[in-house]
Structure formats: C-alpha cells, structure tokens
Design a protein around this nucleic acid. Sequence first.
DNA 1: GCCCGGTTTCGAAGCGCTTCGACTCACCAC
DNA 2: GTGGTGAGTCGAAGCGCTTCGAAACCGGGC
Lengths: 332, 332
Amino acid sequence: MVTIADVARHAGVAPSTVSYVLTGRRSISSATKARVEASVRALGYHPHAGARSLASNRANVLALVLPMREGMHMPVLMQFVVAVANAARRHDHDVLLVTADQGAAGLRRVAGSAQVDGLLVMDVEMHDERVPVLRDLDRPSVLIGFPADAAGLTCVDLDFAEAGSRCVDHLADLGHTYVALVGAPRAVYQRDTGFAHRTMAGFSAAAMRRGVSSTTLPTETDHESVRVAITGLLERHPAVTGLVVHNEAALPSVVEVLRSLGRKVPDDVAVIAICPDDQAERLMPPLTSVAVPAEQLGHHAVALLMAKLDRTPTPPLTLLPPRLTERASTTR
Amino acid sequence: MVTIADVARHAGVAPSTVSYVLTGRRSISSATKARVEASVRALGYHPHAGARSLASNRANVLALVLPMREGMHMPVLMQFVVAVANAARRHDHDVLLVTADQGAAGLRRVAGSAQVDGLLVMDVEMHDERVPVLRDLDRPSVLIGFPADAAGLTCVDLDFAEAGSRCVDHLADLGHTYVALVGAPRAVYQRDTGFAHRTMAGFSAAAMRRGVSSTTLPTETDHESVRVAITGLLERHPAVTGLVVHNEAALPSVVEVLRSLGRKVPDDVAVIAICPDDQAERLMPPLTSVAVPAEQLGHHAVALLMAKLDRTPTPPLTLLPPRLTERASTTR
DNA sequence: GCCCGGTTTCGAAGCGCTTCGACTCACCAC
DNA sequence: GTGGTGAGTCGAAGCGCTTCGAAACCGGGC
C-alpha cells in the first residue's frame, strides 16, 4: 500500500505538506503543489479512508436510509437512490446503504461508529419510529418527506398538497365538475405515509374551494385490481370526468382500463398523473402530469445535508413547488 | 464519543481485553466477558469504524457496483440490492453504493482507499470495461453475471442458457412446434449483456435439438411497442403457439396485448416468463415461469465474497440451476 | 545590516483501535 | 518442591492520516 509518507518522500516534502495539498486546508506554493500532485499520480496514491476518518473525524460517507415497504414503487425509488449517489459524489462523498430492516438500531450503529457523517432518510411516515432517533443522534440528517412533527429536523419534499390542489384547479379550469383521486395502495395510507396524505388533503381542499364534487380511492397496483377499482369508480360515480392518478405503478393499467371500457382520453375522461415526467411522456396518450422531481429532490437533500455538515444554516422545511405540464390527456 | 478506553476503565480491564471480547480473537473468561459486555451496553459504546479499519486492515464494508443502464428493470434490480444489503449485514458488513457513472475509476478509488474489503459487481457485460480493473485490484470481487472471459474471476448467475432451454423443452413437451422468444430491449443486446445472450442461445439451441421452429425478437418495454411487436410477430409467424418472455417490464403488456388480440392464454398461445416468481404469480392468468431468484443470487454472491475474504477456496463459476414452475399459462 | 510580517513548510502529537509478545496464575506431573 | 503448560490478561507499538505550533525563508522598510 502506498502511504502519504511514500508520496512525501517521492516529492521531497514532509507528509504534512502532502496532506495540505490534498485537503487544501493551508496554502501551498504552486510549485510544491504541482510536484506533490505529480507524485500522487506517479505512485497511484489513494488516502486510506479509515486513517483519514480517524484523524479528521470525517468519513466522507453519507448514509442513505431506505426502508423497503409494501406498495413502494421501485423505479421512482431507484431514481432517488441514483440521484443521491451522484450528488454525493459531486460533493466528494460516498453513500452507505442502510436498508431499514435494521430499524432504528441501524441508524444508531452507522452514526455511532462514525461510519457516516450524516444521514439521508427516505419514505418518511407521519409517525416514524426513526424520527426520535434522528433527533438525538449527534449527526446531521435530512429527511426526504415529512413526519407529523418535524420540529428540529430538516425536511425536503415536493409540495404534494399543492400538487393535488393544482390538479383539481387544472381540471376545474377545463370545466370539469366531478373529479376523482386514484391514490396509492391502501398499505401506503395505512402506515400514514406523508406524501399520500398530503396529496389527498390538497386534492380534497381544492375540490371544496372550487366547488367541484370529488371522491378518492386507494388503488392496488396489479392490473386486475385496477380494472375492478376503475370500473367500480365509474359505475358509482358516473358523473366523474376527471381522474388524478397518484400511483405510478397503476398508471399504465389505468390508461389501459379506460381504453378497454371505451372511455376516450381526454374526450370522455381527462387524466392527470402525479409521477416522474418521463413516465407521463411515455404513455399513450402522453399524460398531463405534475412531475415528481426525484432527481431534483435527491440533489437538494444532499445539498442541504452538506450545508449542515458545514454548519451553514439551513431552512428546516423545504417544499418544492409542483410543476404541471399539459399534455394530450387533458386537452379539450 | 465513548472510546474503548472508557469501556476498559468502566469494566476495570485493559483496552486490549475489551477488544478481544468484541472481536473474539482470543479466549476471555466468561466473567470478564460479561463485565465488559455490560459496560459496552451501559456506555452505549460503538467502535470507531475508521480506527478499526486502520488498525485491522478490514473495513467491514462491501462495495455494490451498480451501473444504471438503459433497459434495466428496476424492481428486479432493487430485489438484488436489498438481498445483498441484508446478506451483508448478516455477515456483519455494510454496503457502499458505487453507481457506475464513475466507471472504473470509482472501483479504483473505493478499493485503493481501503473503504471496502471486497466488491460485488452487477449487470456484467460480455466485454465489460470493469473486468480488467477487477483483475488487478488487490481486493476480492464477485460478479453477478458472466463476462466473455471469466478467467481469474468469481462469478455467480442463474443458468440462463439452461433456463431458455427448459422453456423450450416445456413447450415442446406440451406439443408446441413453433415458439418465439420475446426478449429484452434492443439496447440490452447491443451492449452485449451476458444473461440476455445466454438465454437466447439456450433457447435457440433447444429449439434445434427438439426440432421445433423458433424465432426471437428484442422488445422495448412500453405498451405501444409491445403491441406493435407482438401483433407483428403473430402476423409474420402465424404458426407460433408458444411465447417465452424474458423481459419483466414488458410482461404485463404482453399478456394484455394477447388478450386484446383475442388470443386466449393458454388455449391459443402458451406463455412462459423468465422473471421473479412473485411477478409471474400476480398476473392474470398466473404465468408458468422460470424464476429469476434475485434474493438467492444476492445471498450467494455475498457468501462467496465472504469466503474469499476468509481466504476459503471458492468455485470460480457458479450457475444456479433454473427452476420452472407450471402455472395456468401453459396448462393444456 | 537588521528587524518584522507574511508566506510556506516541517515535525510531532494524537485520533481509537488491533495485535503481538510477555506476564501472571493455576494446575498438574514428576 | 520444581518445572512445564495453557488459559487469561496486560502494555505498548503502530496502523496512516490530519492538525497545531513553530521553524524557515523571503522581501521590504528603516
């Protein structure tokens, strides 16, 4: 193994000088700097991560806490994971995966052992058992999602309430008077996941405000369940002419079922999805949608965490404004 | 921060004794052991990971190298990730995520900095740029998948050739004389991904051997592409009565398109999927399938890597035998 | 010619752990 | 009794890095 002492010898300087070149924590003359950098390359030197973390008290690793729960949509989840990993790398950090089957103990372990400098927590429930743990951990954390009590925490999320509301507004503006929210699987609501609740709240409130009738139903993701759910919905509420779908996995089936029922989109039924843009674009017809900006959220969360690590003050709550893109599924 | 010295003082022993209790590398009297363990709990001690890795030359972390490429199916990928993470934890290791947008340099970095003890590499291509790097890294690695030249490497995978072959056999046994392979998206073949090629090879060879006619077509994942592809397939090859689908994302659409074309499954067309069991079960009708045992593969890969870390001899190549489960989509 | 301030570099301490050799006790065989 | 043995424990060295204080150097002003 090549050590900093080897590099120092090769470049004819002291080990501390090499360290300062690498970390940039003291000014070094450009001549020395160039010489050291050449030696680093020549020897193929990589600082020992453990030694560095021991001496500097920074591991340059972030924990990504990722529970795997029923009803979660993997493609979207994966977009988050990749966005976080890439953003972390841009800040010279790596990502340690903590799947939550280890629960709160896992958080204590990775934080307590100084394996990670900070934590990024996904799929936050309203009353999440991890929240109190995060509060008394000595490491900073950022939640993607909101618990019921966010005091003392830093959270980022899409403004799902506003997203639900914008969908209703768009439909109401187009003259629809009866709209339905096709929501996440029942399990997601049952465990009180913040984003599902907030979309529903925003949806219902906007319907009241705009004076349009509304109904909501949780929906499973398999095709057969979707068929039953949508068919039932349109039978019970024949006046429904606008659908807001907040369920990425069910989305293709919803479109397909409407087609097979002979309901033309958008002529008979308008459809708005709350999902990543690329998915909305790929369906036939392309769907008007409120984007779930997974990439942007991931980057933002990492940026906030890095700021906290730098002791820069950060806003406790960040709600990204929803962006609605009109496509073929709601045009008159 | 609580250090090993604090624990030692609290328990009235030397730091080295605490270390031996924790690592189990020397025998310790049960009385002392109990006392130390009580102190560890009382003080909430977690060994500093960096210090440990520096002193012992082991980080207890595995890298999971995960390229994100076109045409990959996220749910299956995620199953692997979770299986690997859980298996690693059972061996007292954590998982560091390396998304491959960093390419070979990323591997060099995490291995060179002693951040990880070993590497798990996914989505291996036939001529993968990472393979030569892995060979000259000083850390052990296990590939999930096979490159063209696997000399000097440890690889695990499902025996996809045999899987393709078993599907043909099953259909031939049922009397089918013209079968088609509905394969992965074109991009997957274009970048020479091992598993896609091997399935196709096994499929074609078995068709020859059994004397049944066969055809193959790559298939994109969106519904419309699937509709065009399947419709075209059945027009060009009207005698086809058996479909082998090796494309998880397209699977629901394939079933749906057959239904909408009025082809009954299994009466008009038999369908076998190569996909995780849970997906095959959830479709209507439930599909006969060869399981892609993501969980088992993940566990196996971790077990092999741990063995290599222990310097236990390991088989260079492991092919898990495919398991075909008969369900409603191929019953006569 | 000397002092002073700033810049650049050096040397040594120390981060928290593991590990090796050595020490201490019992205990047993002779 | 004495020597040998093995189990249990201790102490100190050292892993590779960062960081702090101090030394060395370089001009510029007097």
